[in-house]
Design a protein around this nucleic acid. Structure first.
Lengths: 233, 233
DNA sequence: CAGTGTGAAGTACTTCACAGCT
DNA sequence: AGCTGTGAAGTACTTCACACTG
């Protein structure tokens, strides 16, 4: 089998786990580990070894029977499959609390997602500097997207402004959106959306706490590991 | 059927959607809408009507055939099922960029998760005030948890400190953790963990962008709506 | 007769278990 | 002998379709 950029579709559940494996493999490589078995990787990722093997099998046959996987090569293949062989500049809409924290969070740039710009509708926020980026007015969004060839937008606005932000991002040419506002966005077919709602996460924890509290006999229930949610409209 | 706090297990996928329905229903109630059909709610939530009906059926038979659901009553029932009939104070570990943004984000308190405290190991951060909360030293964590009866902890530390933070939270008596650090935590059985990894979200988007770019013929693929990931160790 | 509640069918993902390679 | 890669079995979730009810 030639080294191929695999064209078979990879299950979403697997796509959501590949970044986790990648992170672990990079750490292992830094620690000087050259090879790893599906069982070793599974242990570190907190999943079942069969799942690791099946997940990796979607990339191709990159393991060696009797031995395991070469860490560096796996890193390379996962990166390629995820499209991480080049940077993806992102534009952030909304320079409030969260927008500022995101812009200032070094982890983005470090992991291949440099902040191409951050915009806000509020003139008072424009020209303030957050995390090395100067906040630009909202109407410069199209220029930023065009100039830096941005295809990923991040919405960090208040809920009421989120749909407008989405519309503007799409109009500017962005094709993927990460939405932190607690609203359901509607976008044209072909635009990929992911939503991160912090309150929803806490509410799910609350559900489990509440069950725990009312579980007479106190027998504990296992909640399975589960991947991400995504939408391509 | 008596108004019951349902004891049947609700599928995780449903639990992850209930907060979304809840948000929409609260908005609708505020807009003066008294009744809503599964189809109407589905539309607003961006899901299939059958899914809405099945999800709601896990709570009990709270609809009226031929009419739909009474908004206020549904809000009440979902709140109860999610354990949102009282507040859940949370403690935040790590007062960096993200920790500060979370503490300052009014949405938490507003949605039933007041910040009982924020702690940091760094003395330079201690006593600074973020979002109305004064940062306390890490070793006060147990007192905060005990005093405010906190059962949910939020980890907003750098990756290397996250496992320590988790251990301390568990030792202090926290039983649910929302982890923003990009590491896999290991915790005792019975502790519920949810992880939010911003870089992972972007990498998933990157995958779809990358596929989009290399899709000869450009036929578009629909990525299904998918709920959250959770772990109870 | 509109719209819920739900068995049954369909789909997606997980796990098992083992053949096959090194 | 050990560990991958994968059909097949198992489980979880989604969607259909329709009986039933207000």
């Amino acid at each position: 089998m030639p080294p191929h950029r695999s064209r078979r579709r990879i299950p979403e559940a697997t796509v959501a786990r590949l970044p986790v494996y990648l992170q672990i493999l990079v750490d292992q490589a830094e620690a000087g580990v050259a090879n790893i078995s599906s069982e070793g990787l599974a242990e570190l990722a907190g999943v079942n070894a069969a799942k690791v093997r099946k997940d990796l099998s979607y990339l191709g046959s990159y393991g060696t029977r009797g031995v395991g996987y070469e860490v560096d090569y796996l890193v390379y293949q996962i990166r390629r499959e995820l499209g991480l062989d080049h940077d993806w500049p992102v534009v952030i809409v909304g320079a409030g609390n969260l927008g500022q924290a995101l812009a200032g969070y070094g982890g983005f740039t470090e992991r291949g997602f440099p902040v191409a710009g951050i915009v806000d509708i509020d003139d008072d926020k424009v020209d303030t500097v957050v995390g090395g980026a100067r906040v630009r007015p909202l109407d410069e969004l199209p220029q930023i997207v065009a100039a830096r060839n941005v295809s990923i937008g991040v919405i960090a606005t208040p809920p009421v402004a989120a749909q407008d932000a989405a519309d503007l991002l799409v109009k500017a040419g962005v094709t993927s959106i990460l939405n932190f506002a607690p609203v359901v966005l509607s976008v044209p077919v072909g635009i990929t959306i992911r939503k991160v709602d912090l309150a929803v996460e806490l509410q799910i924890l609350s559900y489990h706490e509440q069950r725990r509290a009312s579980a007479q006999g106190g027998q504990l229930h296992a909640v399975p590991n589960e991947p991400g949610r995504g939408v391509t409209a």
